[in-house]
Nucleic acid binder design. Structure first.
Lengths: 206, 206
DNA sequence: GGCATCATTGAAACTTGTTCCAGAATATCG
DNA sequence: CGATATTCTGGAACAAGTTTCAATGATGCC
């Protein structure tokens, strides 16, 4: 009775199982790309990945789990890309802002996929806690990479990074629902990235 | 062919209709309080509010609409309360932080209700755009009230306020899913509220 | 090879959000 | 008041996520 086998990058799966997992994620991604959250229908994912519905549910215990895993998968690719082409701005805050805007534009090109992943991510409840945590950690890592400090960051910096990550998600969702313009996204990302610069300046606690 | 009659504070409804709207919101609130998002089942809301299912859907075209309207309703109460007991800290950023933490603690006492409202809010798509906007505006207003400046805020301040509002939502969700501790919430809220102080200090744009 | 265990399949059933509709109730207008 | 339009009701029907299960297949162990 192992935990469901669909999580992060599989721990101990046979080749066939690993292949199934990949097929499922690929199907999920393709359907999401085509029509967003609503188009990722479990029956269709199963059929398209050529597994039985029950098997799909054994690998990913819910649609949210599946889409959050898909998000993790996509974020890994993004992380790779960013690694190969790191931002070159002199200021850390600027590097973070540029990185996030680059990621943002990448997702802009796949709005349906982005919508599916992010809706699932923010809708997730406790039951998908582990998966959501994994995505959060990866996001944090991406931001910390952009900041560039090599040693372990201080608590205040971590707080700033959390806030930045949350903001990035919110802006993405806001833009996807047509509630925030790209200019506002840009502005807000820059605003929040200033936290990297000013994180040690003042303390609101009295 | 009017728009659905369940939106913000009713425009032109008969007394009976207004009463129905209230009953529905009350039922939604009660069910959410008891068991969160999942416990707000449309059939139960309808029965509990003593209206037919079709009528419920005429007033609120989806579960998300209903819960976002519920959120608006609750936020109005919060706004009132805050108005009666405004924060007295000298620093604007501190006033905002204190206000948000106070609101946070209020919702902590009704975690199920908070979960239901916030899951719906972040899950909402374009179709609930108007409702979501209304909630966003109200949130903005609450924060601006805490800042205290009487005249129209500058764009940069508005950007900071948007970021603060998003952060507040994310922290709430994170805490509700057991992913963020209260200490972290407190810390992150304080972190992001510094944007009110530092919003004009630097600009990351090169 | 044969057996025990676990995974996969296919299909039906169940749950809950959502839609639809025909008829009863209510409101509006002349 | 009567005619007409709108709203409300009760209930069936539909859609998609999720659960369940018996039968079949694969894997590994002796």
């Amino acid at each position: 009775m192992t935990a469901h086998p669909g999580f992060p990058s599989a721990s101990s799966l046979t080749e066939h199982q690993e292949a199934r997992r990949r097929r499922i994620l690929a199907a999920s991604t393709a359907l999401a790309r085509r029509g967003g959250f609503g188009a990722v229908q479990m029956r269709e994912v199963a059929e398209s990945a050529d597994v039985a519905l029950g098997t799909l549910y054994r690998y990913f215990p819910s649609k949210v789990h599946l889409l959050v895993a898909t998000m993790y998968d996509q974020l890994e690719r993004l992380h790779e890309t960013l690694h190969r082409h790191p931002p070159k701005e002199p200021e850390p805050a600027a590097r973070v802002a540029v990185t996030l805007m680059r990621a943002f534009r990448a997702l802009q090109r796949e709005p349906n996929l982005a919508e599916a992943m992010l809706r699932a991510f923010t809708f997730a409840d406790r039951s998908a806690g582990a998966e959501v945590d994994a995505v959060s950690r990866l996001t944090t890592e991406i931001i910390l990479d952009a900041v560039g400090a090599r040693d372990a960051p201080m608590p205040k910096r971590l707080s700033a990074v959390r806030v930045i990550a949350h903001t990035w998600h919110s802006e993405l969702i806001g833009w996807l629902s047509g509630r925030i313009s790209i200019e506002q996204v840009q502005e807000d990302i820059e605003t929040v990235c200033n936290l990297i610069t000013t994180e040690t300046i003042s303390d609101v606690r009295r």
